[in-house]
Design a binder for these strands. Structure first.
Length: 878
RNA sequence: GCGGGUGUGGCGGAACCGGUAGACGCGGCGGACUCAAAAUCCGUUUCUGGUGACAGAGUGUCGGUUCGAGUCCGACCACCCGCACCA
């Protein structure tokens, strides 16, 4: 029996070196085998990784290694989402250059990732801050601009006062900057935008084709895009506002257009409300200081969720009234703080009986509340919405020609009627589809990002930087000693001549949102090293990514932007595919308990010792330690485990095995010392089993024996089933189940070995044991690759486990001749019976009735019914 | 408020299409080996009653469909996630 332990510390670096030297993870585009592209979301180089970062890389690595064994040409690259604010913050804090800081972090993290034994093609490594990468991005930007997918406009933006930059709506979470956490303010700036909202419909429709995406993510995107169908309705202004001072613009519009999804409730309209940002509001406010003050008050209202929720409905009566388009009573026009300018037309009609907001508003300003939809079964004389609006289904009443119709019928009838009502040269009503999705503002007032390749000329306007002058490189000599954008205050960088007229002009000093960088990197990886960054042929060959893996936090932003970007690249002819990620998986986080000393200071796990009685103390001082609930690993709470420590004590294979065990990959998983120790024991167990099997079968001829006995067949069945099941599990990314099957198999394997030791190793048993060892090693190879190589050597096999094929399963060994059926009596399990697999139900029934336990239960009576489900179960109803 | 998800032993979790609930692991208990320990191996471990074979209960709660429900349907409870004045 082999007693030597597997020495991961020695073996792991050795095998990593061999893999590296032989270049087995280098991928070639001209490889004739079918392609498979596995990608994990590339990291931001923040400094160091902890073991919690490793989970998605390990999952991706298992898939990559498995697919390689199945004969695919696998692309599994890695890169760095290297632009972004933390580099500038570090520059300020440490008086260093963002680039230097970033590249140092990349060097550290690359070594840490290599430590994990990932089968990555490092030759394709990219960093988005590399001029060759962002230069291509500038080219793409200009092509998008030429194609009409980019524009510039003055817009109110979300301003992050801490990071001193603009944020997209999606980057504002609960009214705070997604990175800084600062309360966001509103400002007006000239910004560059991508026309993502024009793609709303196709982005929505495309979701239906993404069958290998989690439903949850598709739903989140669907809601984010927020399609609604409704009607644009024109309301004619009836009167000039009274009591307004002279100087009111004479060119007031003659009508107000509103957007509604509930045209059926038009007869319940008791007011119109304009957004404070509506052009008519601005026009009226110019001549009305009270209104101007009201608008100003609305603007100060704040943008945080908490504020919006608690904010009371506020309105200002403009004195205008509009005619009711269906002949109802005239309706007053208000300006209201809750009407958004960015959605619909910036104006609404209020129906207080059937909408909460309108209800609140009407009560506050004493406007009439007329119910027009009657719930089924309600009495029209009694029905009241005094307690709150009713927004359910029902029958129309108080609504003239709509009375008696259902809500959908009424919607349709109103739409038809208003479409056919002509006022001036246009219909009063027009069907319209609205989306919640807004255009993507990409301008950022920061240094460490991709420069927007535009030159502003006083006479020519914004002019693209000519192609031969790309990339527009970031200047190296910048300072961070004052707030604001270093590019803007750089002494020379922005001063250039206009490419059109040659007059002195200024560079655009804004850089792009870093989400642009991550919107096409997956296409960049397709090109071989040293070739053009975005090659159509290569991208079309590799894309879409077959399996993309990353955190759920990117369900909307990154994934929606990437989908938009890919579609737009297709429209300008850069690629042929429209969806970048065919399969998506969102993995859970690794969490860890937190520890605090009596002074309330966070402690690292290695500073804490757990006592047998469940309490914890600080190592050295014996001070009591408060153990907190498991939380996401974070530097600030110190509940992190560095990969180096794990590698040194247990080996990375143990860490890999542990990360794949027990918890389903989409759920959060808790890192515990007991767990890693369990993984360590199991790694040793595999090592021992393989060694023992080789020792035990030493001298047994390897040739296939002439016949197999019951025991060897049973073991062979287990081996072949293992390979078939683990294959299925890995295909479905059910790593925890795969791990359980391997555990189960080692129990069977161990038992077979013990009985062979007692009963003697006949040629068939010897063959089965060796096969079992080989199957075991091959099956775990994607999960614990270093151990697999070491075992491969023990097995005396040529080549590397990493380049070996997946075990070939003999279908005959997956079948059983007999099957054991549970017997239920009245639905309760009372026994079992073993019958031939293909026994006809009638015979099974006969055999079951002959059993004593059945006749006893029946007590002489005939059974009422017998249900035989072939190969499943027998139920006797007494 | 709207939308979605989850709920199974002391713990992580398994159970394909409605067919033996608790696979596998962790922890616990008992044993073997050892002078002893570690390591390893074997047995046991849902709960209740019983020495025992066995019986009863049991997948958040209540009800329903079915020969049979963790799985399907209805109502509810708890927790988690997303969105949120989107007309």
């Amino acid at each position: 029996m082999s007693t030597e332990r597997y020495n991961a510390r020695e073996a792991e670096p050795r095998w990593q070196k061999i893999w590296d030297e032989r270049g087995i993870y280098r991928t070639r585009n001209d490889d004739p085998r079918p392609k498979y592209y596995v990608l994990e979301m590339f990291p931001y180089p923040s400094g160091r990784i902890h073991i919690g970062h490793g989970r998605n890389y390990v999952m991706g690595d298992v898939v990559a290694r498995f697919k390689r064994m199945k004969g695919f040409n696998v692309l599994h690259p890695m890169g760095w989402d290297a632009f972004g604010l933390p580099a500038e913050n570090a520059a300020i804090e440490r008086n260093t250059h963002p680039g230097k800081w970033t590249y140092e972090n990349i060097a550290t993290m690359r070594e840490q990732l290599k430590l994990l034994g990932l089968s990555l093609d490092w030759s394709r490594e990219i960093a988005t801050c590399d001029p060759s990468y962002y230069g291509e991005q500038q080219r793409i930007f200009l092509e998008f601009l030429a194609g009409g997918f980019v524009y510039r406009r003055e817009s109110e933006v979300n301003w992050d006062p801490v990071d001193n930059t603009v944020l997209a709506n999606e980057q504002v979470i609960d009214g705070r900057g997604w990175r800084s956490g600062a309360l966001v303010e509103r400002r007006k700036l000239a910004q560059w935008f991508f026309r993502i909202s024009d793609a709303s419909e196709e982005l929505l429709a495309g979701l239906d084709t993404l069958e290998r995406w989690p439903d949850k993510v598709r739903l989140m995107q669907r809601n984010w895009i927020g399609r609604s169908e409704g009607l644009h309705v024109r309301f004619v202004i009836e009167n000039a506002p009274e009591g307004l001072p002279a100087g009111l613009p004479q060119d007031l519009p003659s009508e107000i257009k509103v957007y509604t999804t509930r045209p059926d409730t038009l007869f319940g309209a008791s007011f119109l409300a304009l957004s404070p940002g509506h052009p008519l509001t601005e026009q009226l406010a110019a001549g009305n200081p009270a209104l101007a003050a009201f608008v100003e008050e609305c603007r100060r209202g704040g943008t945080s969720t908490a504020e919006i929720e608690t904010q009371e409905k506020m309105g200002f009566d403009t004195g205008l009234t509009v005619a009711h388009p269906l002949g109802g009573a005239p309706v007053p026009v208000y300006v209201a703080n809750f009407v958004l300018m960015e959605y619909g037309t910036g104006a609404i009609f209020g129906c207080p009986a059937h909408d909460q907001r309108d209800h609140d508003f009407a009560r506050k300003y004493g406007l009439p509340i007329t119910p027009v939809v009657l719930p089924a079964g309600a009495d029209p004389a009694q029905f009241s919405v005094a307690d709150g609006p009713y927004d359910g289904d029902g029958t129309l009443f108080n609504s003239g020609f709509l009375d008696g119709l259902s809500v959908p019928e009424a919607k349709e009838k109103v739409a038809l009627k208003l479409e056919n009502a002509i006022l001036g040269n246009a219909p009063v009503g027009e069907r319209a589809v609205n989306y919640r999705l807004r255009d993507w503002g990409i301008s950022r007032q920061r240094y460490w990002g991709c420069p927007i390749p535009i030159i502003h000329c006083d006479s020519c306007g914004p002019v693209p930087v000519p192609a031969d002058q790309l990339p527009v490189r970031l200047p190296e000599d910048v300072t961070f000693d004052q707030p604001g954008n270093p590019l803007d205050r750089h002494p020379t960088w922005k001063h250039v001549n206009c490419p059109h007229c040659g007059a002195p002009a200024r560079r655009e000093t804004d850089t792009m949102d870093t989400f642009v960088d991550s919107s096409w990197y997956f296409a960049r990886f397709a090109s071989e090293p040293g070739t053009a960054p975005l090659q159509k042929g290569a991208a079309d060959h590799w894309l879409p990514v077959d399996q993309y893996i990353g955190g759920i936090e990117h369900a909307i932003l990154h994934l929606l932007y990437s989908r938009f970007f890919t579609r737009t690249l297709a429209k300008i002819g850069r690629v042929s595919i429209t969806e970048p990620f065919a399969g998506l998986f969102t993995q859970g986080m690794i969490v860890h308990e937190t520890y605090k000393d009596p002074a309330g200071k966070w402690l690292f796990p290695e500073e804490v010792e757990k006592r047998a009685d469940g309490t914890a103390v600080k190592v050295g001082s014996n001070e009591p330690v408060t153990v907190g609930a498991p939380e996401k690993m974070s530097k600030s709470k110190k509940n992190v485990v560095p990969p180096e420590i794990v590698a040194d004590t247990y080996g990375v294979d143990c860490a890999r095995w542990f990360m794949l065990s027990d918890t389903p990959p989409e759920r959060d998983s808790e890192w515990t010392s007991a767990g890693i120790e369990g993984a360590w024991r199991f790694v040793q167990r595999i090592w021992r089993l393989v060694g023992d099997a080789m020792e035990l079968t030493d001298g047994v001829r390897e040739a296939t024996p002439e016949s197999f006995g019951t025991e060897s067949v049973a073991l062979r069945q287990a081996s072949h089933r293992l390979a078939a099941q683990v294959e299925d599990d890995v295909e479905r990314l059910r790593f925890n189940v795969a791990v359980a099957r391997v555990h189960s198999f080692t129990n069977v394997f161990g038992d077979a070995m013990a009985s062979a030791r007692k009963g003697g190793v006949t040629p068939d048993i010897g063959y089965a044991l060796r096969e079992a060892a080989e199957f075991l090693v091959a099956v775990v190879a994607p999960m614990v690759p270093h151990l697999a190589e070491e075992c491969w050597t023990v097995l005396g096999r040529d080549g590397l486990a990493a380049t070996a094929g997946w075990p070939v399963v003999e279908p005959a060994l997956l079948m059983d001749d007999t099957v054991t059926l549970p017997i239920q009596i009245n639905g309760k399990r009372r026994g079992e019976i073993t019958v031939p697999k293909d026994a006809p139900p009638a015979e099974v029934e006969k055999a079951v009735l002959a059993l004593e336990l059945v006749s006893q239960a029946l007590d002489g009576r005939a059974p009422k019914r017998i249900i035989v489900v072939p190969q499943r179960i027998v139920n006797v109803v007494a």
